[in-house]
Amino acid sequence: MYRPREAVYAIIVNDTIDEVVTVQTPDGYFWLPGGGIEGNEDHSECLRRELLEETGFSAEINHFIGNAKQFFITSENECIANEGTFYLAQLCKKVSDPLEDDHSLKWIPVRSVDELLYHKHQAWVVREGLRFNQNLKEGSMN
Rank of each mutant, 00 (worst) to 15 (best):
residue 92 C to S: 11
residue 88 L to A: 10
residue 78 E to G: 02
residue 142 N to A: 06
residue 110 V to N: 11
residue 126 V to G: 05
residue 116 L to C: 10
residue 100 E to T: 09
residue 103 H to N: 13
residue 49 R to P: 02
residue 53 E to V: 03
residue 17 I to V: 07
residue 45 E to L: 03
residue 115 E to C: 14
residue 3 R to D: 15
residue 128 E to G: 05
residue 106 K to Q: 14
residue 85 T to Q: 04
residue 24 Q to T: 01
residue 39 G to A: 03
residue 42 D to Q: 08
residue 133 N to Y: 15
residue 128 E to A: 09
residue 2 Y to D: 10
residue 103 H to M: 09
residue 121 H to T: 15
residue 58 S to R: 12
residue 12 I to H: 01
residue 100 E to L: 10
residue 135 N to T: 15
residue 17 I to A: 12
residue 34 G to L: 00
residue 31 W to N: 08
residue 11 I to E: 00
residue 51 L to C: 12
residue 66 G to P: 09
residue 29 Y to H: 13
residue 52 L to W: 09
residue 92 C to M: 12
residue 102 D to F: 06
residue 100 E to D: 08
residue 10 A to Q: 04
residue 9 Y to R: 05
residue 62 N to Q: 08
residue 48 R to S: 11
residue 140 S to Q: 04
residue 3 R to G: 14
residue 21 V to D: 00
residue 118 Y to T: 13
residue 132 F to W: 07
residue 137 K to C: 13
residue 8 V to G: 11
residue 44 S to L: 04
residue 55 T to P: 00
residue 121 H to Q: 09
residue 78 E to W: 03
residue 122 Q to G: 03
residue 72 F to M: 13
residue 126 V to S: 01
residue 62 N to P: 04
residue 134 Q to V: 09
residue 58 S to V: 08
residue 46 C to D: 04
residue 27 D to C: 04
residue 30 F to V: 08
residue 89 A to G: 02
residue 88 L to R: 02
residue 19 E to C: 05
residue 33 P to K: 14
residue 101 D to P: 11
residue 55 T to E: 00
residue 67 N to T: 11
residue 127 R to K: 06
residue 43 H to N: 04
residue 57 F to C: 06
residue 10 A to F: 00
residue 116 L to P: 11
residue 122 Q to C: 07
residue 139 G to A: 10
residue 31 W to L: 12
